[in-house]
Amino acid sequence: MNETVLAMTLAAAVAAGTPLALAAIGELITERAGILNLGVEGMMLLGAVTTFLVSLATGSPWIGMAAGALAGAGLSAAHAFLTITLRANQIVSGLALVIFGTGLSTFLGRPVEGMPLPRESRLPRMNIQLLQDLPLLGRVLFQQDVVVYGTWVIAALTAFYLFRTRPGLSLRAVGESPATADVMGLRVNTIRYVHTLVGGLLGGGAGAYLMLARVPAWSQAATTNGIGFIAIALVVFASWRPWRALLGALIFGLALRANFALQAAGVTFIPAEFLAMTPYLLTILVLIALSFSDLRRRAGAPEALGVPYAREER
C-alpha cells in the first residue's frame, strides 16, 4: 500500500467514523445523566429519512440536517418522557425506540426508497487552507466536509462542558447519584430531560450526516447498518470520555473501511466476510468485557446509569 492509498484510506476512515462519533458523543451525554438510550439506531434512521425528505424538498442540505437532528430529538423526547416521568424500564423503552424509529422511517421513506439524493443537496467538501498541504495528515484530516470538523468541535466542547464547567459537574452528579444531586438542590429530572434531548439531537444529526455525505441513496435496510448499536458500544469503549469516543470512532471507521481497502490492495489471506464483520465483532467483545460490573465501574460508568430516579423512594 503506497502513501496516497494509505492517506485516502485513512481519510475515508475519518469520514466513515464521523457519524459514529456524533452518535456516540450524543449517547455519552445522555448516559452521563444516568439515562441509557438504546434507541440510537432508531433515532439515526429517523434522522436520515427526515434529512433525505427535507433536503429533497428544499434543496438545502443544511435545512435537511437541522430537520434530521430535530427528528432525532423528538424521538428521544419520547424516551425521556417514558423513562424519566413515567420511570419505565430504560432498556425496554430504548429497544422500543429502535423498532418504532425503524418502522416510522420505513413508512416515511416508502415513496423514495432506493432513490439517490441529487448532488446539489449533498454536503460539499471544505478544505482547510494551509493545513491541507501537510504531508499525509493534510489529506487525512483537512480535506473533509464541514461536519467532520464540526464533530471535532463538538467533542472538544463536550469535554470542556463535562469536566470544566459547573453545569457539567451537575450533570455528572445526576448521573452518579441523583439522590445526592437532588439534596444539593439540582433539578434532576430537568437535567436528565435536557441531556436526553441533546443526545437525540446528535443521534439524529449522525443519521443526517450519514444521508448527506456517506450513503448515496435512501434505503431503510441499508442506511445505518447497525452503526447506532456500534455507537452505544463505543461509549463504553471510550469509558464515557468524549475524546476517546472520537478516537474510537476513527478505529471503528477504519475497521468499516478496511474490508475494501485490503481487498483492493490484493490482501486476500483474510476472507472479505471476516473483514466485514470486524466492527461488529469488536462491538460484541467490548460489550462482553464491560458486562463485568467491577470492570465497568473501573472504566468510569455513571453509577446511576439505567436506574430511574424517584424522589419519594429515596
Binding site: G114, R214, A222, N225
Partner: peptide, 12 residues
Amino acid sequence: FGPEIELEAAES
C-alpha cells in the same frame, strides 16, 4: 443492494 457499502468499495 447496499448503497453505502458499495460506495466505500468503489472509493477503495
